[in-house]
Design a protein around this nucleic acid. Structure first.
Length: 328
DNA sequence: ATGAATAACCGCCAAC
DNA sequence: CTGTTGGCGGTTATTC
């Protein structure tokens, strides 16, 4: 596999956080993964040192020429009211024409929009700027409720931390879900926001795009969690053999069907523990796990507490969550 | 905590 | 030729 080049922009008044995300995901060598990792170039928008929010100043080794050459160009939060210099516009446009992947984080979407790359496309940005983006660029279909939007060659992400979700999505595209999960694990973040719900409900992109049938079966499963579901059931929903289903599932998701199912069941169990007074036995059955013993075992493995301790700690309105749950 | 019964997982491979 | 499919069966995981 060829080594892929990624470039990220730095500029005066930027927040180091978003650029930091990019550096963390693409700039760290990851020999443990056994594939050539990315070649990251941090590029300044203008010559000279860059002053960041918080008063740091930093030197970046490359300029806009190098920025424009990468396979993937990333623009972190660009101040919405700052004009985008022609040289930067040109860099973005020429890269786009060449077929490169152009990516924004947070208000970086304004730079892409100014370059005309978002015209007629769906895009997102930080929710605080969504209305402004919509007003200033009426041809852009702004969707403020997603973590990120993948339009193929042009990708935009919402507020700061959603940039991390998008970067992981890029890794997933390039190397597969298992690699993305490995990177997420090393960053100690959840590979799928909110344990798996968010990507389907709020961010429609991930699995749906490259595997409709698997995504559909997963959506179906979420609606039928309380019923017994086997590999065969899921495969049938996806109109595939079990063997093929397992393969597709792994490719789309990076886990196995039953692992995912158990995680979903536990997660919906959390809500029941918080908001109802059903017994653990009843909660278990409600989420499709027939025995409370089994439920407890899975629960402890996933959350390192017992269901009842979790309930005491997180019952809605009881403030002191973490500490109480941990001591259980 | 243990273990027996059952299901899932995944490499291998022949067949599209 | 490259890529996908789905059955087989040994190993591992899950359930009760």
């Amino acid at each position: 596999m060829p080594r892929r080049s990624v470039s990220v922009l730095v500029f005066d008044g930027m927040s180091p956080f978003e650029t930091g995300i990019v550096v963390e995901v693409f700039g760290l060598e990851r020999p443990e993964l056994g594939v050539p990792w990315y070649d990251l170039a941090v590029c300044r928008e203008r010559p000279g040192p860059v002053r960041t929010v918080g008063g740091m100043s930093l030197q970046a080794p490359y300029g806009l020429e190098r920025f424009a050459e990468a396979d993937t160009l990333i623009v972190p939060g660009w101040p919405a009211d700052r004009e985008v210099p022609p040289a930067l516009l040109h860099a973005l446009q020429s890269a786009h024409t060449r077929g490169a992947r152009v990516v924004s984080i947070c208000s970086g979407a304004f730079a892409l929009a100014a370059a005309g790359l978002l015209d007629g496309r769906r895009a997102t940005t930080h929710w605080r700027y969504a209305e402004l983006l919509r007003r200033r660029y009426p041809r852009v279909q702004v969707d403020a409720d997603v973590l990120y939007v993948d339009e193929g060659q042009v990708l935009t992400s919402a507020g700061s931390a959603a940039g991390l979700d998008l970067c992981l999505h890029l890794v997933r595209q390039d190397h597969g879900a298992a690699f993305a999960n490995a990177v997420a694990r090393r960053l100690v973040v959840s590979p799928h926001r909110a344990g798996g719900q968010a990507q389907f409900v709020e961010a429609p992109v991930p699995a749906a795009q490259d595997d409709d049938r698997v995504a559909a079966s997963m959506a179906w499963a979420l609606e039928h969690l309380s019923e017994p579901i086997t590999l065969g059931t899921l495969a049938a929903q996806a109109v595939m053999s079990s063997r093929s289903y397992s393969r597709h599932f792994a490719a789309a998701t990076g886990t196995t069907p039953v692992r995912w199912l158990i995680a979903q069941r536990l997660q919906s169990g959390l809500a029941l523990l918080e908001t109802t007074s059903l017994s653990v036995e009843q909660v278990a059955r409600e989420v499709g796990i027939d025995s409370a013993v089994t439920f407890r075992a899975h629960f402890r493995r996933a959350y390192a507490t017992s269901p009842s301790a979790y309930r005491v700690a997180f019952r809605t309105g009881t403030g002191t969550g973490q500490a109480a749950a941990r001591s259980a």
